[in-house]
Amino acid sequence: MKRVTLTLVALLLIGTPRRALAQACCAGASAVTPGRLALHEDALVGLQVQAGTQHGSYDSEAHFHATPPGAAVWDFEQDLLASARLVRRGQATVLLPFLEAWRRAPASAAEVGYGLGDLNLSARYDFTWSREVSYLPGIAALAGITLPTGRAPESARLPLGSDATGLGTVVFTAGVALERAFDRVLVSATLLGAKRLPRNVHGARSELGSELSALGAVSYSLPNDASLALSVNGRFEGPASLDGSNVPGTARRRVRIALAGAMPLSETVRAHGSVFVDPPLDWLGKNESASAGLTMAALWTFP
């Protein structure tokens, strides 16, 4: 589950905003998508760190339950990422996560697990940039693949699975991103579909449902090229199947709200940060954990 979010993040990390056309577009977009290359940039490398805690979960009837006393989950993640422009309008990114988790449950002792996560490769191709064509938004195609380099849940060695760091299967993603700048305001939307390959779980053929993620964001660029953005991400997934049959009550959804900011530290270095929360409200989630946390990133770009 986390790996699909990772894919979305990775896909959003790349792009080709056109500096000459809209400086506000670049600054605004980078608040939501930290790793996006500006038009004058050919590559970047970066480190993103994330810390979050689960404050509850949404059950199969879409009711929210706060984390019970005695239970706690803290997740930490460090992502190494690198982007490169392959063609004028297209670029690719590789993202390598490393995860740590601290978990405690009323019936189990606290434990710490860590490990390499699932490697993600993604690409973006911009057919049009924002304001390039007066009557069209910026339109980009997105594609990605996540490889099961992490440890699947069944392969975890700790009782609460803190050392499970991967989904255990290959994930293919494809989508479209739209954006339009209005003076200092950038409005963007991303739709992304994900398909997970079936896998064998203790002799059964398990396959997660197809997933659709929708992200909407509004960014505002400040005069110093810093920017702020508010985004809402909805993730919807169909029912899972077991041995070819859909399992009732297993569809999932989650809504995440984030406030992000970006600030250039020099001509080639910029910093990003965000806070996010899955609101503790019924019907906003189903069969999902609810988390809150923050991210920080530092990126070095190469013109």
Partner: peptide, 15 residues
């Protein structure tokens, strides 16, 4: 007995 989480498509680390 196999504990299984159908919505997440995974089992338990312990059998």
């Amino acid at each position: 007995m196999l504990p299984f989480m159908p919505a997440m498509g995974h089992g338990s680390p312990a059998v």
